[in-house]
């Protein structure tokens, strides 16, 4: 019998669906609830990304694909949205994320001192995560708390009127908590 004709089809892209990291139950229900608010599922893309991030700390490639499948989009389309926004992390972050406001009022009120102190303390640059995965340092645009400048967010918590010393205290507390 004539054998199967050889084609080069094997070099074709692997189906992205095979590399999905499935949504967990909570993600699934939370996303479904959001889809409800809009005339088309794609409109819930940002919420879906935030939901996954809340659960996982960040949004992995596999989760991007899972969201894509859920919202009838391609992973590329989801990633296009995900990479636009500051607050969607497409790389793993530390247990604690410290976002230091680097905008104008905080800058006037001593941001540079804070940045210097904390990068020295942790021995990482802004934008990096400590090797033990405890802390990620991020510069962040104006946090809308200029009346308390300089400020930072430690995860969801706003901390005000920081000094290098008080920030380092916060950092150390976060380190302890993660270990």
């Amino acid at each position: 019998m004539t054998p199967i004709i050889a084609t080069d089809a094997a070099t074709h892209c692997a189906d992205w669906r095979l590399k999905i990291e499935p949504l967990n139950e909570h993600e699934e229900t939370a996303i479904a609830a959001q889809i409800h608010h809009y005339p088309q599922p794609q409109a819930a893309a940002i919420e879906a990304l935030k939901i996954v991030q809340q659960q996982q700390g960040w949004v992995s490639d596999g989760k991007v694909k899972a969201i894509a499948q859920r919202l009838q989009m391609s992973p590329d389309e989801v990633d296009s949205v995900a990479t636009f926004y500051n607050k969607i992390y497409r790389q793993p972050v530390g247990t604690t994320v410290i976002s230091i406001c680097d905008s104008v009022s905080c800058w006037i009120m001593g941001y540079q001192g804070l940045a210097q102190a904390v990068t020295q303390e942790l021995n990482i640059a802004l934008g990096e995560t400590t090797p033990d995965g405890a802390i990620t340092l991020l510069p962040t645009p104006c946090l809308g708390a200029c009346d308390h400048a300089p400020v930072a967010m430690v995860d969801d918590q706003l901390t005000r009127q920081l000094t290098p010393a008080s920030l380092i205290l916060l950092v150390r507390r976060a380190q302890e908590q993660s270990s």
Partner: peptide, 11 residues
């Protein structure tokens, strides 16, 4: 065409 052969769908 080598390029197109690589893009053909499997049989």
């Amino acid at each position: 065409s080598t390029a197109l052969r690589q893009r053909s769908d499997p049989l």
